[in-house]
Design a protein around this nucleic acid. Structure first.
Lengths: 343, 343
DNA sequence: CTGAAAGCGCTAACAG
DNA sequence: CTGTTAGCGCTTTCAG
């Protein structure tokens, strides 16, 4: 401890904390002593125990980290979150979400790591084991895009409304045969057209809401095509299946931009012109340079703002307040991939 | 404290730790008491202080988080790292790297957060303020792809050798006019052809090594085109500049796959056929589905293994050992984007 | 096998 | 303005 060498004990604390009643001379002396002793400053562990705060926000990624990162949506939200949390002196601890079915339901980190607040991205269902664990540990939690819960702060977007608007855009263009490519239904991650029975197993809230937006606009999709993940290749697979069929749809609504861009690629592969032969729309409003010259018609969500809103909710929880549920607005952005229905 | 309610005090510790000499009956009683008292288990903060360990590995991203995440390379390495660290009970704390020039040189988290080990991704130069801070704090550090330092563990890949092999592949195909598109030179992030003077300012080790690989094979690039970031759009801009010129190269070697795919897109835009009119090669070995039908010729690096190697180095440092520097092998993977030099 | 006690390093009250 | 002191909650000897 620097105190022994310098002069006193608690004075050192004041010297480092900067504020507090301390003479400049003493302060300088302490810092000087610290330097010669190669004392690196207050040990965070002591401070944390004393304060009862770790300064850590656990972010539970909805899935294996890799898949989460490959998704620009997660990345940008995470970036916005980190930017808000940084100035508050809070750090982001990555906590892997539920893995493959076989693994233990909850990552050990979730049980044992120190965190003042948790953020569950792409939140689970009501009986989500992650939320149950957090509840048991008494960790205040922000749920992003999840099923609303009384004791958990919520941040989301108006994806249902956005999807309805997008659907109306297609209706206005004269489309009647509209298919939809969805995000996963659950952790099972199956793939292919979903029949009525499968639709009753739709556990993932985000998928359900975006689907509801389509029906809100009065459209019953010709096919609801479920994908195992929101990646370009999954969209391409869906696109091939939908567009190679004899009675192909004239428009495909996708629940993410990556899926939509996969569908565009599949259409190109099949020699179909977009949007003359088939219209394709996505969700998220990403800037996908490699799709050029096409620009995806999409529902843009404010990613950085979403991260910031999560950050605000986090700091409210840290102050002991339960913030109001936030629903951020989205905006239809018409690109080059949607046009009048053929013939 | 559960002890008061149940029976004893330190016995509770044993009950939770699982191992240790304790009667099953007592143990059960303690756990039961804990449950009724809604005691959530040992407080990690106390444990950490006692043990002198936080269980946290700080990962310093070379740049703003967003840009780092948009790069599949970072994501996949991070994923491999988290997978290795998880079973060791270690968590990954994201620490933003140096931001825009104006900001404070070092993120406050780096100064104050508890971490047992730090990992500096895309490591800086010798006098990197990040490394200096870590040194001062006495935090053992793993440097990834950085300038070798005596007191810091190193993990890297044989990118120089891989680049040389790739260059020889192009030489074998008869190419003589070869341009190269590089990663950033430094934090300045300028853009455009680099003259001799600019080349002397090449601070970023990874860029320097990959460039050296090209010259190792005996090639002097017709142009060394510097980009401000490893993104598709930057590659596209470089491609437009290089391929629209009258004396365009017959082959373009890029220091990343994202840059290379941008060059391919630019070539397509300009009506050039790949590889008949121009060959394009990248580095990383990513699986870029959206480039279909092209498959990029590239030097594949083992991303998940790199993450695992970092994890191994981390645990060595935690045991007080300084691990041997690791240099992982790379492999040339010939795709459809390189072919014989035109006429 | 269980209990008592020390101390990890810090901060915040409280005296001087 | 500076020094003393009491814990934050845990683990880990060391006795019983």
């Amino acid at each position: 401890m620097a105190a022994a060498a310098g002069v006193s004990v608690s004075t050192a604390s004041l010297a480092f904390s900067g504020s507090g009643p301390i003479a400049d001379a003493t302060r300088a002396r302490v810092l000087e002593a610290a330097r010669t002793l190669a004392y690196a400053g207050p040990n965070p562990l002591g401070r944390q125990l004393r304060r009862g705060r770790s300064g850590i926000v656990g972010v539970i990624m909805g899935d294996a980290l890799r898949r989460a990162f490959r998704d620009p949506v997660s990345s940008q939200v995470l970036d916005g979150l980190a930017a808000t949390l940084g100035p508050l002196g809070l750090g982001v601890l990555l906590v892997p979400g539920p893995h493959d079915a076989s693994q233990p339901a909850v990552d050990p980190l979730l049980e044992s790591a120190a965190m003042d607040v948790a953020v569950q991205m792409w939140g689970g269902t009501t009986d989500d084991p992650v939320l149950e664990t957090l509840r048991r540990r008494g960790t205040p939690t922000v749920l992003v895009e999840g099923t609303p819960q009384p004791d958990v702060a919520a941040v989301g977007i108006d994806d249902r409304g956005g999807m309805a608007e997008l659907t109306r855009h297609l209706l206005d263009l004269g489309h009647t045969r509209i298919a939809t490519v969805t995000l996963p239904f659950d952790r099972g991650r199956s793939e292919g057209p979903a029949d009525a029975e499968r639709l009753t197993h739709l556990a993932w809230e985000i998928t359900r809401r975006r689907l509801a937006g389509v029906t809100d606009a009065g459209v019953t999709p010709t096919t609801v095509y479920e994908t195992p993940a929101s990646l370009v290749e999954n969209g391409a697979a869906a696109g091939r299946a939908l567009l190679a069929a004899p009675d192909r749809p004239t428009a495909v609504i996708c629940q993410s931009d990556l899926l939509a861009s996969g569908v565009v690629l599949a259409a190109r592969e099949l020699g179909l012109r977009v949007p003359q032969d088939v219209s394709v729309a996505g969700f998220d409003g990403l800037d996908l340079a490699w799709l050029a010259p096409d620009v995806l018609t999409s529902v843009a969500q404010p990613l950085a703002e979403k991260g910031a809103a999560i950050g605000t909710a986090v700091s409210a929880l840290l102050e002991g307040r339960m913030p109001e549920p936030q629903v951020l607005p989205v905006a239809l952005r018409v690109g080059t991939t949607t046009g009048p229905a053929p013939r």
